[in-house]
């Protein structure tokens, strides 16, 4: 089944190259993706299910998030406790449902904020050029040079471990790659004739940037966003796993792994179940990102 992605990830297929000349809306492209690449479509459904489960966690979850039941500690998975219970007798399945809220929000929201910052930085750098470009891109270089986990650790050290600070940390590391992509698009598009035409009839710089250049970046940005979300989820879970991310009593998947780790050899599901959840959603986003790239942005470098 996975072949479809793999088949298409190198060369745009014939159908695609035929249609490149015609103006083909994003909706048509998405339809084509579902047809050519069912795995990407399945991934989109998986992601949707995860999001719905996170939203309706209080309804679905059989037990409360932090509802201790000291008589039923460290239970094996059973019908009453689908994934067993942890050392305080809390139902793991319910905790994971609630944990998905934080994990998914932290995947999506910081990626969205870094997208906005990256777009503005990239447009400005590419359009104005000169020293503005130099300064912005050197700042981006600096952010990209520090290994992301270590940079996030420095932020958490300075600002303290809290969910908001985790957002800050992930945004700081995320915007620079967006800025690079937008800048390179801007550089090539600003020389095109229609931008020249807009400039000659006196359209303002900002309007050119956002009305005429930005829309051309959207396909790449959709792909980039889809691929940034899983890396944000992984970063959050890594930080929480190290104990410097989310603070207890709130749980994210990474934190549940961290707490379940001491029972790895007796109750392995306590830490492996949330691991699997992380893996599935990351895998789904990666598949979807690959599929989107094939239809939206066939020439983008991997």
């Amino acid at each position: 089944m996975s072949s479809d992605i793999l088949k298409n990830d190198i060369r745009p297929d014939d159908e695609l190259s035929l249609q490149i000349g015609e103006r083909d809306g994003i909706r048509d492209k998405l339809k084509r993706m579902c047809r050519q690449n069912p795995l990407a479509a399945v991934s989109a459904i998986v992601i949707l299910i995860f999001i719905l489960m996170a939203i309706f966690a209080p309804i679905i979850a059989p037990y409360g998030e932090t509802e201790p039941d000291l008589l039923n500690r460290l239970q094996d998975p059973s019908l009453t406790h689908l994934l067993g219970t942890d050392e305080l007798g809390r139902d793991l399945f319910s905790r994971m449902l609630y944990g998905s809220r934080l994990s998914i929000t932290i995947g999506i929201l910081p990626s969205l904020i870094s997208l906005i910052i990256g777009v503005i930085a990239g447009l400005v750098a590419g359009y104005f050029g000169g020293w503005i470009d130099y300064v912005i891109m050197r700042i981006a270089d600096v952010m990209l040079s520090v290994p992301s986990l270590l940079l996030a650790m420095v932020v958490m050290y300075t600002l303290g471990t809290s969910t908001i600070n985790l957002f800050v940390a992930l945004t700081m590391t995320g915007w620079s790659s967006v800025a690079r992509v937008v800048r390179s698009h801007t550089l090539s598009i600003k020389e095109s004739e229609y931008v020249e035409a807009a400039r000659s009839i006196g359209v303002s710089k900002w309007k050119i940037m956002f009305r005429h250049i930005f829309p051309n970046c959207i396909p790449s940005l959709i792909v980039l966003f889809t691929l940034n979300v899983p890396s944000a989820i992984l970063s959050e879970s890594s930080l929480s796993f190290l104990g410097i991310g989310i603070k207890v009593p709130f749980a994210s998947w990474g934190l549940i792994v961290n707490q379940g780790r001491q029972f790895l050899f007796t109750q392995p599901w306590l830490c492996l179940a949330p691991c699997v959840a992380i893996m599935i959603i990351v895998l789904a986003f990666n598949f979807l990102g690959d599929g989107l790239r094939d239809v939206l942005d066939p020439y983008m470098q991997r």
Binding site: S2, S3, L6, K7, P230, L234, S237, S238, F241, G254, V257, R261, L264, F265, P268, C271, L272, C275, V276, I278, M279, V282, L283, N286, F287
Partner: peptide, 30 residues
């Protein structure tokens, strides 16, 4: 290219890319 072996190897490698490092570590340890 594109036969079963290709799909198998690429499936496993995508799994590799999507596994958090702590998960790989814990599974290997286990």
């Amino acid at each position: 290219n594109n036969n079963f072996i290709d799909r198998l190897f690429m499936g496993v490698s995508l799994l590799g890319v999507s596994m958090p490092i702590f998960m790989t570590s814990l599974v290997l340890q286990y």
